[in-house]
Design a protein around this nucleic acid. Structure first.
Lengths: 149, 149
DNA sequence: TGTGGATTTGCAACAGAGTTGCATTTACTA
DNA sequence: TAGTAAATGCAACTCTGTTGCAAATCCACA
């Protein structure tokens, strides 16, 4: 299990990688998409819109609305996924490695940090009410992270 | 497994029950608390602030801020718990039956309705990163409810 | 039963995350 | 390279929830 492991590649390589990922799908390449996806590829934690905005401020000027739309687009196209925790703020994370593979999240009750627990197996069959159909299972372990213990 | 099973008791009895519950803990009785808790006791689904407001409109006039504060108080005191789903809106549910007992939630991807799956057993031990401590496990099954299938 | 004082309530104003409309700019196709 | 559909920037907006403060209410105690 690995947490928050920054890629060893320089960010430039990730920008190339992001560009390739988008081009491969036949979608339009824009600076917003490249920079945002590259940033998310470099980060294994799920990060907020605000955090992304702060981090991209240096290399590329961005309107916040544009960033919202880029994130929504990346989510729609399956490049990233998003989740919401107790502070009711969207958090985004690249889908690389595990396209559509379910995994659990850990949420720190004190600092509200969210990390992904990749080796979760969604092997549990749930008995649902009649007529209900399960599509995905989201599991969040809440507690205290190492810094907050 | 039961879903959204309205109590067979008339609402008046639930108001008495709510009052007893609060009095038993030595807390102050107010109309807001009684009506809100009674309403939540009658409902097994997790409901939003807005839904509660609508439903209480007839019997008791309420300021929305007061309702927010009542809900926060009920949550703090352990009479209800709250959860947030993909629409980033708090949902509240009475804790009766299962004080502090973990259970899963089902969230409909189309109508965003949330129901509680009571017979979930949080028997899964998770391998957490070093220094991390688990306090509770939240499990959400996402899919389509009977009406939306 | 009446009263003092801490709690709760109502109102207004605010805060933060996210959305919408629209004119301008950009990426890509032909 | 030009035309066009898509993406961007800006301003204004919505929606959920919060804060400050004066007025009303609850309840312990006399």
């Amino acid at each position: 299990m690995q947490l928050c492991c920054k890629s060893t590649n320089p960010l430039v390589n990730l920008q190339k990688k992001a560009e390739e990922m988008i081009r491969y799908r036949g979608e339009r390449i824009t600076p917003g998409r490249i920079h945002t996806l590259a940033m998310l590829l470099s980060e294994r934690r799920a990060v907020t819109h605000h955090e992304i905005e702060e981090r991209l401020k240096g290399e590329h000027r961005f309107d916040r609305v544009t960033l919202y739309r880029v994130l929504e687009w990346l989510n729609e196209k399956g490049f990233v996924h998003r989740l919401v925790n107790a502070d009711r703020v969207w958090r985004f994370r690249a889908n690389i490695h595990e396209y559509s593979q379910p995994h659990a999240h850990f949420e720190c009750l004190r600092c509200t940090k969210v990390v992904c627990l990749d080796d979760f197996e969604a092997a549990h069959d749930f008995e649902l009410p009649a007529g209900y159909r399960s599509r995905e299972i989201e599991l969040t372990v809440k507690g205290l992270c190492a810094e907050c213990t």
